[in-house]
Amino acid sequence: MTAPMDVPSSAPEAQPGAVLTGAGGSIQGRSLRQIAWLRLKRDRVAMAGGVVVAVLVLAALAAGVLDKLFGLIPTTAFNQDLIDPDLQIPKGAFGGISLAHPLGIEPTSGRDLLARIFAGSWISLLIAFLATMLSVVIGTLMGVVAGYFGGWVDTLISRLMDVFLAFPLLVFALALAGVVPDNAFGLSGDVLRIALLIFIIGFFNWPYIGRIIRGQTLSLREREFVDAAKSLGARQPYILFRELLPNLAAPILVYSTLLIPTNILFEAALSFLGVGVRPPTPTWGGMLSDAAHYYQIDPEFMLVPGLAIFVTVLAFNLFGDGLRDALDPRAR
């Protein structure tokens, strides 16, 4: 008999799926997770995306936390002395880039763009993350239940997915965001807008992941380890959450990293259309919308939030794709 395959057990553990795998308690051996991590490390492009993602997340956290605690980011400093009083655009070349304002300043108001991009990253990522989590939780539950139980349960959930997918989400979002008052559900101001965006974006996106999880569950439930659990008298929650769910950690993780950039774009679009978080709170979409008024005389203003969105979305997508390849069982 052959000796067990040798993989160095000291491999650093990313454990991104640890929350989802949950089962098993004290897992030590060399898991598939570690193998995936080794493969991911070799993928330069994905790792570059991952590093950018990590930096962005840290920056957003810093922007959120530090600013809340110490008011470090001068988003409300109106540098009127740097604005050309006639044209209302920043003095100097490239939108007023200087040592003090590395990305330049906003036309008319004179606010520092770097500070606003920073502050905006906090809101963008927060909404995208939480909306993704909402979609993933609903989608996973619905997908597992549909795939495992089949029959009329599956038919019902699948039709529900079709309904949600056929839903004119953007129109609905515009309408809903327009009619919700400034105080609702005991929330108000930015918090209410953020909660609303998370709900709209998250609640209507679950069928995408739902379908993927349903498909995976359909093939997983035919595996003999499910029969083995049944023949030991396992109850259905055990089979769903202890046997099946850990095997779905990989697609859940991959799909989450790929859904985040989509949600960033969607949030930006809503903010651009003026139904997102309200000014003066900075958002990338909102800045882009402001920049649209100046694109002929101050194109640099548009470039900054545009690039922020582009780089973030690209980084998440590259990382997500790499993760998918690393976790792909067929490449094993």
């Binding site: 897992i27 898991s31 598939l32 595996r223 029969d227 083995a228 095997n247």
Partner: peptide, 20 residues
């Protein structure tokens, strides 16, 4: 279930790959 048990055909599918 304690009294009647089954050994499965495919050792690659009968063990949950995510369990030790």
């Amino acid at each position: 279930r304690r009294d009647i048990q089954m050994i499965f055909q495919d050792p690659y599918s009968s063990l949950n790959p995510r369990h030790t």
